[in-house]
């Protein structure tokens, strides 16, 4: 049993899981509040990555130190992804709030394709290399290449985001309003909650987290292209469903389960079938537990 290899796979799996979690949370929050699978959420992640890349490249030319570039690029990416999420909701989802679910789903699919091709046409279909922004941390040199500086940043940032999100949902007025709206929209309206605002805020927060994920993973992997949102989106969505769609802790759990499974699966079984692991797990869980790991079984009152 090669412990080193195991550890490497574990870290790699946790890294994946972190990124999936950042994206999956957005999916699950939106689903919890408007019962919509935002197919275009992956594209928000991708747009975050691209925005960061553009900003970073421009700033790099001014000679600014890497860590500042990183911070600014991240901030700008967050702002922009949030803006895209906000706009997307107003155009493609708000008009369909009372429409059948299939309509909203199809609109989401349309938005996803639109955004993918928007970036494709406006930028390029090639893979674009993401600038190296995070310096190699000195203290990691002893770790023997098991843990990279980008991974450390990913873990730290993800942890901070999780904590902030939990604080927001549990202790702030807006968090309470979000939980109320997710439970019963009509009642929330009747107690004076501005539903439109809350829904918009949900999209904004979800998009911001996706952007963070996008920037982090692009720093780690080193290159991006217009299609990454699609794949990451599907995986993160699988993670959210795995954990129980609508459940925030479920999204986190599902993401790490997925990330670790993929890592160990590709490490020990086969790397060709990487994407398949996600779906196999999903199918298995849904067969035996249709509402996901932590999901509430939606017993319909007849």
């Amino acid at each position: 049993m090669d412990l080193n290899y195991l550890l490497q796979l574990f870290i790699s799996g946790m890294t994946r899981g972190s990124i999936y979690a950042l994206i999956a949370l957005g999916y699950t929050m939106v689903y919890g509040i408007v019962q919509l699978i935002n197919f275009a959420h992956g594209e928000i992640y991708m747009i975050g990555a691209f925005t960061a890349l553009i900003v970073a490249t421009v700033l790099n030319m001014t000679g600014m130190p890497g860590i500042y570039v990183f911070a600014i690029a991240m901030a700008v990416a967050i702002v922009y992804s949030a803006a895209y999420g906000f706009t997307m909701e107003k155009i493609a989802y708000k008009p369909l709030r009372n429409a059948p679910r299939l309509s909203a789903l199809i609109s989401a699919i349309g938005m996803s394709y639109f955004l993918q091709n928007y970036v494709l046409l406006a930028q390029t279909s090639d893979f674009v290399s993401f600038p190296r922004l995070i310096p190699k941390f000195r203290f990691l040199e002893g770790a023997g290449g098991m843990l990279s500086s980008t991974q450390v940043v990913i873990f730290l940032v993800t942890a901070v985001v999780m904590v902030l999100l939990t604080l927001l949902i549990k202790f702030t007025k807006i968090g309470k309003a979000m939980r109320a709206t997710a439970q019963d929209k009509t009642m929330a309206l009747l107690v004076g909650i501005n539903i439109n605002q809350i829904i918009a805020v949900t999209f904004v927060i979800g998009s911001a987290m996706a952007a963070i994920g996008g920037v982090l993973i692009s720093s780690h992997v080193g290159q991006i292209n217009f299609y990454i949102g699609f794949i990451a989106g599907i995986k993160a969505f699988v993670a959210a469903v795995l954990g129980g769609i609508g459940s925030i802790p479920g999204a986190v759990l599902g993401s790490f389960v997925l990330g670790l499974t993929e890592s160990f699966g590709t490490g020990y079984i086969s790397s060709d079938y990487e994407d398949v692991f996600a779906f196999i797990i999903l199918v298995l869980i849904l067969i035996f537990r249709p509402s996901g790991l932590l999901g509430k079984s939606q017993k319909e009152k007849i």
Binding site: I91, A92, P95, L96, A99, P100, S103, A104, I106, S107, I109, G110, M111, S112, Y113, F114, L115, Q116, N117, Y118, L120, L121
Partner: peptide, 20 residues
């Protein structure tokens, strides 16, 4: 042709909003 996918995407959204 270049904008074909943009068009598909937009059609889906527009149809669902205005003529489901």
């Amino acid at each position: 042709t270049q904008y074909r996918m943009l068009l598909y995407g937009s059609i889906l959204i527009l149809m669902m909003v205005f003529r489901p």
